[in-house]
């Protein structure tokens, strides 16, 4: 299953905390024309570099599908950044 929600939280040393929730599916729908273009470019790149197109696209899809559960939580010098993919 593709990611549903990406949460980005930034806590700077000073100033306001920023918390952003990105619903992936609606964003993908909005960007679908760009996605089609990106797939076409990827296909051409695969052909140029002699990489098998369908296995490459399949692997790319598997990577996207495996993203849910990924979490990056960084804190440095009183600044914190969290990226969570669900």
């Amino acid at each position: 299953m593709i990611p549903q929600l990406v949460t980005v939280r930034v806590k700077p040393r000073t100033g306001r905390r920023v918390r952003v929730w990105v619903p992936v599916l609606p964003v993908l729908l909005i960007l679908s024309p760009v996605l089609v273009l990106a797939v076409a470019v990827a296909t051409v790149a695969c052909l140029v570099y002699r990489i098998r197109v369908f296995p490459a696209l399949g692997s790319g899809w598997r990577i996207v599908s495996a993203l849910p559960g990924t979490r990056f939580d960084l804190e440095y010098a009183h600044t914190a950044v969290l990226v969570s993919i669900r």
Partner: peptide, 11 residues
């Protein structure tokens, strides 16, 4: 400073 990364093995 703290780094906490969780990556699915499937990835």
């Amino acid at each position: 400073s703290r780094v906490n990364i969780r990556v699915p093995l499937q990835l």
